[in-house]
């Protein structure tokens, strides 16, 4: 049962994020866009604790995914972190207002990702 989901249309980014999460003990699934992510969430709902999602993706973007997930009361405690190249203040506030727990601006390194996990308490 996976407890973390990485959503990004770049396979390379998914691989890096997944590797980083596995290093700190997460069991990771991957999705290439928001639509695929919803399918994984439906299957892994009981165990899922963390979603890292890109913003710009085909079919369903990260913000739409975020809004969708936040509508589900069963996922109220799910930690959702945006990991994106969108770095304008309006994007950050829009994501936070929509229910993102944290926001990581690309480029980032592993240390930054782990700090963000710590800020949300999901690693503990």
């Amino acid at each position: 049962m996976a407890n973390a989901l990485v959503v990004d249309d770049s396979r390379a980014v998914r691989m890096i994020l997944s590797k980083n999460l596995r290093e700190v003990g997460f069991d990771v699934r991957e999705a290439g866009n928001g639509r695929e992510a919803l399918e994984v969430v439906a299957a892994e709902k009981a165990s899922l604790r963390l979603v890292l999602t890109d913003w710009n993706m085909p079919e369903m973007n990260g913000l739409e995914l975020l809004k969708c997930l936040r509508k589900d009361p069963a996922l109220a405690s799910l930690i959702i972190i945006m990991v994106t190249t969108e770095t304008e203040m309006e994007h950050i506030t829009e994501a936070l207002d929509a229910g993102a727990n944290e926001y990581v601006m690309k480029p980032f390194d592993k240390e930054i990702l782990f700090q963000k996990l710590d800020l949300t308490g999901v690693r503990a």
């Binding site: 950050i92 936070l96 944290e102 980032f108 240390e111 930054i112 800020l119």
Partner: peptide, 11 residues
């Protein structure tokens, strides 16, 4: 800005 700063405080 990514390092250590909670995003709500950034905003």
């Amino acid at each position: 800005m990514n390092r250590g700063l909670p995003s709500p405080l950034l905003a």
